[in-house]
Design a protein around this nucleic acid. Structure first.
Length: 225
DNA sequence: ACCCAGGGTCATA
DNA sequence: TATGACCATGGG
């Protein structure tokens, strides 16, 4: 009997170590204030971070990296400022919604469990599974793993099975993840390492070869050219 | 000219 | 519950 591509059990510790040893780790998440991290998490949806930075600079120079003035601003004003980040009409609505949430709920976040906080964020228009987890991890410092597209591609390349959606991956793998007992700081670094590896993986010929290099401890060498 | 990027919503079946 | 259209800019 043949079973094809029988997925192995992900060893998150091993993957983390491979990445930590071989991938450049800058600061995650970039941002001067907690609210800037919130806004960045929305603006970066399906968008290159370089474009997001331009939008954040525009907001900052306009004094709008602050929830109160932001919700008081005209949609057209915000749209013009964040235009480089793309989808500026929908993101304007999203930014206003999450700003209102921040004003109302930020102060009581410490009274909520990780799941309660996540669900509260998910109720906001424009905040889906990944953006919610970004905020839960980088703004509220709760220990969650970000199952973004890079992470799922990495897991697939490592032979750990295919995970077409964020929620499926989270449901399937969170039990194993918790068993590995990562600290919040480790998970914060983990996501950054995965994204940095993902950016390099394109130049290296995709996640498949990128993971091969990682497993053989040749990733750093290969990515330095 | 084409492809993708640190996703999410909404309508439809 | 699951798929597909839609949202938009900028760099490779």
């Amino acid at each position: 009997m043949v079973w094809m591509d029988s997925p192995r059990t992900p060893d998150f510790r091993q993957i983390f170590t491979l990445l930590a040893d071989q991938v450049e780790s800058d600061e995650w998440w970039p941002g001067e204030t907690r609210f800037e991290i919130v806004i960045g998490a929305v603006l970066v949806q399906n968008t290159n971070w370089a474009n997001v930075e331009k939008a954040i600079v525009n907001l900052s120079e306009a004094g709008l990296l602050d929830p109160q003035p932001l919700i008081a601003s005209e949609a057209e004003t915000i749209g013009t400022l964040i235009r480089p980040a793309g989808y500026y009409n929908v993101k304007t609505r999203y930014i206003k919604a999450i700003s209102q949430w921040f004003i109302t709920h930020d102060h009581e976040a410490t009274t909520l469990s990780d799941d309660e906080l996540r669900n509260s964020l998910l109720a906001v228009r424009g905040i889906g599974a990944e953006t919610a987890d970004d905020i839960v991890l980088y703004v509220y410092h709760r220990p969650v793993f970000i199952y973004d597209s890079y992470a799922r591609r990495l897991l697939e390349a490592a032979g750990f099975g295919s995970y077409p959606s964020y929620d499926k991956a989270k449901r399937a793998l969170d039990p194993l993840l918790h068993a590995a007992s990562f600290t919040t700081d480790e998970l914060a670094a983990f996501h950054g390492l995965i994204v940095n590896a993902g950016k390099l993986s394109r130049r290296l010929g995709g996640w498949s070869t990128a993971y091969q290099l990682l497993a053989e401890h040749r990733f750093a060498e290969a990515s330095n050219r």
